[in-house]
Amino acid sequence: MIYETLIAPFQEFEFMRRALVGVCALALGAGPIGVFLMLRRMSLVGDAMAHAILPGAAIGFLISGLNLYAMTAGGLIAGFVVALLAGLIARVTELKEDASLAVFFLISLAVGVTIVSMKGTNIDLLHFLFGNVLALDNQTLALIAVNASITLVALAVIYRPLVIECVDPNYLRSVSRVGATAHLAFMALVVINLVSGFQALGTLLGVGIMMVPAAIGRFWARDISAMILIAAGTGMLSGYGGLVLSFHSGVPSGPAVILVAAGLYAASVLFGRVGGVLRHLIPQRHLEA
């Protein structure tokens, strides 16, 4: 029974195995990125960037149909352009970065949906917005795996300046110039992970596997390395749980993955060791010192 529910789907169907590998690789890269976005109070920036990728991917689609390379290249270019422009406008004008990002992503979303609906059908649009994790081909899997590997290696390289820039940006600025470079590299990682997420879960839900596990990590760990492990782990767990749920209940796989993550999040809010609700509600005797 347990075997049939939890393991058999993956043994019987290749598309399930592919999907599982895909979401695991995705969670491995996106989780740590999500933790840093959260700690830099940029949780919604991920969302904004995801929308920004849409027109690029749509132009790729317009030119060559559902072609992985064209759509990826388009998405990457659009993502980088928006990240750079938003950062630039924030730096040279009084507008804060979040406000200028908000403007850009809304423009991008409008442009993207317009382009897709000009040429494609409603099904194409749905594919764009919500992805299809059950239809990952080899190329897409390879792309996700490569992106996850780049993410982990690059994060290891910029980890120290990134952490310092999060806690005490003034200090980093006072001792070194690497802060800006690290920030750009980090935004680039956000973009490539969103492009990965876009392939599997679509523009709208791709951010889910980045931010929800990160928020879960916050409820269980006090230090950042543990948060990163928990985020990657719960991301993978959500991926697996979501696929099982989707297989048995017929819920579309992308939303199912995020729903499972949401369930874990709800449980963390209630039972979390660090700042969970129950901890507040159950009075504990204060300590002696």
Binding site: V167, D168, N170, R222, I224, M227
Partner: peptide, 9 residues
């Protein structure tokens, strides 16, 4: 000092 005191460090 613009230190984010909620940062887990």
């Amino acid at each position: 000092a613009e230190i984010d005191r909620t940062f887990p460090i």
